[in-house]
Simulated assay, not measured.
Amino acid sequence: MEPNNKIALVTGGSRGLGKNMALSIAKKGINVIITYNSKKDEALAVVAEIQKEGVKAAALQLNTGEIKTFDAFFEQIKAVLKDTFNAGHFDFLINNAGIGINAPFAETSEDAFDTLMNIHFKGVFFLTQKALPLINDGGRIINLSTGLARFSAPGYAAYASMKGAIETLTKYQAKELGARGIAVNVVAPGAIETDFGGGAVRDNQHYNDYVKSVTALGRAGLPDDIGGVVAFLCTEDARWINAQRIEVSGGMNL
């Protein structure tokens, strides 16, 4: 794939779904900046993989729940855009970074609630807001939600509520950023086999079997099932998709 000089910023791109998204985007000829929370070595390994696709790549540390660090982060982004990409702006923001906390509604602590809100909603809200001056007109924003915002499973009341907020926010972003030609969409994965949430879908055979039983295509999802959809939304073929929730779950809980 010929490089096209477009640039994507993928939060939480050092592992799991974010890594798959970053590599899938690179295969479209798009340059990629990933963020990582703590695992710098993993992030640099992903950068090396992305570069093998013939595009440019960089990694920056970011805790997406620490809103007060965002101004300094975007100063770093400006420097990286200039030094690595010879650019002043980027084109695609993928708000992927996240954690899973599984607790019954009755036992969810305020600290756990605040952590989930800061990472999955407040952080996404203000990271995107602060990114706006650096996103090219005609760019794209892709927010990540979850199948759990459509159907419910015990233990995810707080997590799924934040994602429900993201789905509403996406429509408002699409409405208000449309004048700049920026399309905003949601990708909502179903149950995926990664280390997310302690690896429950991947490592718990009972839960994995349950997921298979309620999924029309008869298996749990894999990271490869998601990354290509996000990459597609960064292409010209997806230019007229806007304010949509695209669930990528194999037909879970239909």
Rank of each mutant, 00 (worst) to 15 (best):
residue 98 G to M: 03
residue 67 I to Q: 14
residue 117 M to S: 05
residue 139 G to Q: 02
residue 160 A to R: 15
residue 134 L to W: 06
residue 150 R to Y: 05
residue 153 A to Y: 02
residue 99 I to W: 02
residue 149 A to D: 01
residue 110 E to N: 14
residue 128 T to Y: 03
residue 151 F to N: 09
residue 111 D to W: 08
residue 97 A to M: 03
residue 81 L to F: 03
residue 103 A to C: 05
residue 102 N to R: 15
residue 91 D to W: 00
residue 82 K to I: 15
residue 104 P to L: 01
residue 113 F to E: 04
residue 113 F to T: 11
residue 86 N to M: 09
residue 120 H to M: 10
residue 124 V to N: 02
residue 65 G to I: 14
residue 111 D to I: 07
residue 81 L to E: 01
residue 87 A to W: 02
residue 72 A to W: 05
residue 77 I to C: 10
residue 96 N to V: 04
residue 63 N to K: 08
residue 141 I to E: 04
residue 66 E to P: 12
residue 127 L to K: 11
residue 112 A to E: 15
residue 139 G to V: 00
residue 128 T to C: 04
residue 116 L to C: 08
residue 114 D to K: 00
residue 83 D to V: 13
residue 138 G to I: 09
residue 67 I to L: 13
residue 71 D to T: 05
residue 142 I to H: 11
residue 115 T to Q: 10
residue 72 A to K: 02
residue 155 G to F: 11
residue 124 V to Y: 00
residue 114 D to G: 02
residue 123 G to L: 06
residue 72 A to S: 08
residue 120 H to V: 07
residue 96 N to E: 05
residue 96 N to A: 04
residue 85 F to G: 01
residue 71 D to F: 01
residue 158 A to E: 03
residue 104 P to T: 02
residue 104 P to E: 10
residue 160 A to P: 01
residue 116 L to S: 09
residue 99 I to L: 07
residue 104 P to V: 09
residue 70 F to A: 03
residue 133 P to G: 09
residue 80 V to D: 08
residue 96 N to H: 13
residue 82 K to D: 07
residue 111 D to S: 14
residue 99 I to Y: 09
residue 70 F to E: 06
residue 160 A to H: 09
residue 110 E to S: 12
residue 91 D to E: 00
residue 122 K to R: 03
residue 81 L to W: 05
residue 136 N to G: 08
residue 137 D to F: 14
residue 97 A to N: 12
residue 61 Q to Y: 00
residue 78 K to H: 11
residue 79 A to P: 14
residue 85 F to E: 00
residue 129 Q to F: 13
residue 115 T to G: 13
residue 94 I to A: 14
residue 99 I to T: 12
residue 127 L to C: 04
residue 132 L to M: 12
residue 89 H to S: 06
residue 137 D to V: 04
residue 103 A to P: 12
residue 102 N to Q: 13
residue 142 I to Q: 03
residue 111 D to G: 11
residue 87 A to G: 07
residue 105 F to T: 15
residue 146 T to E: 00
residue 106 A to I: 13
residue 129 Q to Y: 14
residue 65 G to Q: 12
residue 139 G to F: 02
residue 158 A to K: 07
residue 105 F to G: 12
residue 154 P to W: 13
residue 122 K to P: 00
residue 88 G to R: 03
residue 152 S to R: 11
residue 128 T to V: 05
residue 125 F to T: 00
residue 90 F to P: 11
residue 78 K to D: 15
residue 63 N to T: 02
residue 93 L to R: 10
residue 91 D to F: 00
residue 106 A to T: 04
residue 76 Q to T: 13
residue 120 H to K: 00
residue 125 F to V: 04
residue 126 F to T: 11
residue 151 F to Y: 09
residue 80 V to A: 03
residue 70 F to H: 10
residue 159 Y to T: 11
residue 124 V to G: 07
residue 80 V to P: 15
residue 86 N to L: 15
residue 141 I to Y: 15
residue 91 D to V: 04
residue 127 L to W: 10
residue 102 N to G: 08
residue 115 T to M: 06
residue 153 A to I: 05
residue 146 T to A: 07
residue 101 I to Y: 14
residue 127 L to E: 01
residue 143 N to A: 13
residue 62 L to N: 03
residue 152 S to M: 04
